[in-house]
Design a protein around this nucleic acid. Structure first.
Length: 849
RNA sequence: GCGAAAGUGGCGGAAUUGGCAGACGCGCCAGACUUAGGAUCUGGUACCGAAAGGUGUGGGGGUUCGAGUCCCCCCUUUCGCACCA
């Protein structure tokens, strides 16, 4: 150990040692208890950014902590290496996507190693390599076999100017992200995965994880799945054979339905209009609405517009005839694409009815709680239809509803659904907002969908033994919207696996979210060439104990991976429902945007990025990591500050100096000490040591890493308060100093591992911190306990004095001592003491009249 | 518009969950050592006040012996959803 703290030297030394010792590589047959710590795998853009640094610093602190506690910790990393940027580089600069990606991986791997993140590099994987995407294809075939993968015509976002397909993100605001051209919808045959099949389970299984996932993530997933209970009801068309099926969650309001409203895309529309005099007008209107919807900015809610079709339908409950309208506020994608319009009890219907002067008829009346309690099934309400100036959307009691009048909404909903089913014009139903997962991408840089098309046999899956379907070495990147694979004849032209006749390969590739849906299972068994992973090996490691990443993945990735796990369970690959036991969504790293007061996520385009390499050059990896973890709670936004990090360097340097000056004397410290013989300061340090161990150990359970670092600093401050020159330290002082400094160094390792190892070695330990034994210090509650307490004494809730007492003091003694205190005596003199509140070990409050 | 979360010193943030508000760090102030200091060390640092003391956790009300913490109303900010029938 050098006298001075030279981060670069120390960090290089220990990174090399760890590499040589394979310190972070784990084996599958280790008898110790496992812990799977995982950060979301990065996209290899080429450069690490501060968000990565934060993410991996959090994960690494936990991985180190668990290792020091004696766990067998799996902490792997890989690359989400398929995706658009590689293809953009190919289109713009003519670079081969594979070479571009591999080069980026090499560079970022070097950056991660320089940060000293403790990954098991022997398990590294990359999505773009055939030995990985082979298994994407394998899973696809398994889903195809079970009817969970299928093809259908669907709309994609299309830029007419660039002649290319855009993702939803690239077409936000209804314009192309690059050229600003209006995006249009185009029909294309696309592959889908039937995630809707698992909708109910995705909600139901949340109860297994809801204690250890952030509530906001669960809420977003719940909204995304969008389960809604209601009923289908058929409105028969008057003078026709058709039935219009509507979905409603409020069947209890059906007597208030004054229209049926169809979406412009409704499949029955043309047929219904055949007899209508208004045919041409309505068709023109529907076309206009469709056009608007295709180009409109989805974030703006337009004015409601509609048109009467002239067709009539019959309300099956009341027998009443109501007009059928078409309107722009009814969506084809949800429910049945048709609704019954109940203006009195629905915001949108109310607004629509007002605009077009449709009748508003109240059929639900507010009901008081007393009434409901007294007569739960039959109460009366007041009809206020005439003066309704806003819809009443709460539950209540039915009025103007024939035989159903007087029933409460809750009761009526159940009974009316059953009645509809009984009479054959409807039934109770559950709908979901979640749509099947479209995985087709007309792109080169992704896993090819493993099917071929044969003129004789139609669509034929590629047999398992012919996997992987490998991407060609290169393609022409024209940006025409068709997959570049279509322009590679040696890829497209193949033979049919069934009949050996000529066939064409599918040229769509898969969404990159497929790759990331199951990658963490592959880490368990990364070189398996007969299965995605061995069931038994994965069983040892999974589920993930702690998953860490940004909350931008709250829905897509985190819902797809839950779906994928349930599918793997159903084909017998895994034995549980949920892949992630505990989830942490870390906050963003932001920096001030130049010349503004705005704090935004660091990015190249805003010019507010901080280069991790420069930070490591200036301060070292340890200080950088320590600062990032100390500066804010892990789930908060982290506002970058140049000055804060110097405090981290300062702290490490001061600890380093202290260890250096004490290390030789500590070797002479005795094995045991009699606590009663310690000086006051020495006892205080001992107490602080044990309190700190307890504090940090429990902080790690919640990942309160900022307060852990603060606790380390407090312990070190307390050590400095000992204020003893090592050369003159007594035996008992050597004991407490050694106890404190060793605990400090071990507990510092999760935050600043290189310098911790260096100091540990400097203290004379030759086998390193990761030596196969649990090294995390244990706390002795007896030693951590305070010997004396300072009890605040309040008069009428205001702090007036303090008592020094032993922790064992009784309530009565505390009360007597407080009343006998000089300051208190003078304050309460001559006044009546109404009450004395004594909280044992906490406080005394004297209440005067 | 709807929904959720959060508002604590100059700043990032603590507060054992109803019991001493401001831990720890940054910044700032003073001092020491220095030719020098943007290095290091020591001390100070919520606000008002000379002090005694008083006031303080977005604002207003409430519950309680006691409220940053619980309840009600309002304000602000952030995030999510955005015609989901």
């Amino acid at each position: 150990m050098e006298e001075k703290y030279f981060p670069e030297q120390i960090e290089q030394k220990w990174q090399q040692r760890w590499r040589e010792a394979k310190a972070f590589e784990v084996t599958n047959d280790d008898p110790r208890q496992k812990f799977y710590c995982l950060e979301m795998l990065p996209y290899p853009s080429g450069f690490l950014h501060m968000g990565h640094v934060r993410n991996y610093s959090i994960g690494d602190a936990l991985a180190w902590f668990k290792r020091l506690q004696g766990f067998n910790v799996l902490h792997p990393i890989g690359w989400d290496s398929f995706g658009q940027p590689a293809e953009q580089a190919a289109i713009k600069r003519g670079i081969n996507p594979r070479e571009w990606t591999e080069k980026n991986i090499q560079h970022m791997k070097g950056q991660l190693q320089r940060l000293g993140i403790s990954y098991d590099w022997s398990r590294e994987i990359a999505a773009h390599r055939p030995d990985y995407y082979k298994w994407d294809q394998w899973f696809f075939l398994k889903m195809l076999e079970r009817g969970l993968a299928y093809k259908k015509v669907s709309q994609v976002n299309w830029c007419p100017n660039e002649k290319t397909v855009l993702s939803n993100e690239q077409s936000s605001g209804g314009v192309c992200w690059r050229c600003g051209e209006k995006v249009v919808k185009r029909d294309l045959e696309q592959w889908f995965l039937r995630i809707t099949e698992y909708a109910e389970q995705l909600l139901e299984d949340m109860k297994e994880i809801d204690a250890a996932w952030p509530e906001k993530v669960l809420k977003r997933q719940r909204d995304w799945v969008g389960r809604s209970e209601g009923a289908y009801i058929d409105f028969a068309v008057k003078d026709g054979r058709q039935k219009i099926r509507v979905f409603t969650t409020r069947i209890d309001t059906i007597f208030g339905a004054t229209a049926v409203v169809l979406s412009a895309e409704h499949p029955l529309l043309d047929e219904l209009l055949a007899e209508s005099a208004l045919k041409e007008d309505v068709k023109a209107f529907a076309t206009k609405v469709k056009a608007e919807r295709e180009t409109a900015d989805e974030t703006v809610e337009g004015e409601k517009e509609g048109l009467n079709t002239g067709v009539l339908a019959i309300n099956p409950f009341s027998g009443e005839t109501v007009p059928v309208w078409v309107a722009n506020y009814v969506l084809m994608e949800y429910g049945t694409g048709a609704v019954m319009s109940v203006p009195a009890h629905d915001e949108r219907d109310f607004e629509f009815a007002q605009k077009y002067s449709l009748p508003i008829r109240q059929v639900i009346a507010p009901v008081s709680h007393q009434q409901a309690a007294a007569e739960p099934t039959s109460v009366t309400g007041t009809d206020q239809s005439a003066e309704m100036n806003r819809p009443f959307t709460d539950f209540g009691v039915l009025i103007n509803s024939g035989d159903w009048g007087g029933k409460l909404s809750e009761v009526a909903i159940t009974e009316m659904s059953a009645y509809a089913k009984d009479k054959g014009f409807g039934e109770a139903a559950v709908t979901f907002r979640i749509r099947d997962w479209g995985i087709s991408r007309q792109r080169f840089w992704g896993a090819p969908v493993p099917v071929v098309y044969c003129d004789q046999c139609g669509m034929v899956p590629v047999p398992y033994e012919q996997l992987p379907v490998v991407l060609p070495q290169n393609a022409t990147f024209t940006g025409t919207g068709e997959s570049p694979l279509a322009g590679v004849p040696e890829f497209v032209n193949t033979t049919c696996p069934k009949c050996d006749g000529p066939a064409r390969r599918e040229t769509d590739t898969m969404d990159t979210f497929v790759d990331s849906s199951w990658y963490f299972f592959r880490y368990c068994d990364p070189r398996n060439d007969s299965m995605p992973f061995d069931r038994a090996i994965a069983q040892q490691w999974t589920p993930i104990d702690q998953y860490i990443g940004g909350d931008s993945h709250a829905v897509m990735h985190l819902i797809y991976t839950r779906f994928w796990t349930k599918f793997m369970r159903d084909i017998g690959l895994v034995s549980f429902d949920e892949p992630v036991k505990s989830l942490l969504t870390q906050g963003m790293v932001t920096n001030r945007v130049q010349n503004t007061d705005e704090w935004k996520a660091m990015s190249k385009s805003l010019g507010n990025g901080v280069d991790p390499d420069q930070m490591i050059d200036a301060f070292g990896a340890d200080a950088s990591r320590l600062f990032v973890l100390f500066a804010a709670p892990v789930e908060n936004e982290l506002r970058w500050s140049e000055t804060g990090i110097e405090g981290a360097v300062r702290f490490l340097r001061r600890v380093h100096t202290a260890i250096y000056t004490w290390k030789d004397r500590l070797a002479e410290a005795p094995q045991t000490v009699n606590n009663d013989e310690l000086s006051v300061d020495a006892r205080a340090l001992r107490r602080k040591t044990h309190q700190t161990i307890a504090k940090i150990t429990s902080d790690f359970d919640q990942l309160h890493l900022n307060t852990s670092v603060a606790a380390l600093m407090e312990l070190f401050n307390q050590f400095n308060d000992l204020n003893v020159n090592p050369s003159r330290a007594s035996q008992s002082e050597l004991f407490v100093a050694k106890e404190a400094l060793e605990a400090l160094v071990v507990m510092l390792a999760p935050f600043a591992p290189h310098v911790a190892e260096e100091m540990w070695e400097g203290m004379g330990h030759t086998d390193g911190l990761l030596n196969g034994r649990p090294m995390w210090p244990s706390t002795d509650p007896e030693l951590a306990r305070r010997e004396e307490l300072e009890i605040p004494v309040q008069v009428n809730g205001k702090l007036r004095s303090r008592l020094i007492t032993s922790p064992e003091v009784s309530e009565d003694e505390l009360k007597a001592a407080a009343l006998a205190d000089d300051k208190i005596k003078s304050l309460i003199e001559g006044q009546e003491v109404v009450k004395v509140v004594v909280v044992p070990r906490r406080l005394v409050n004297i209440v005067l009249r």
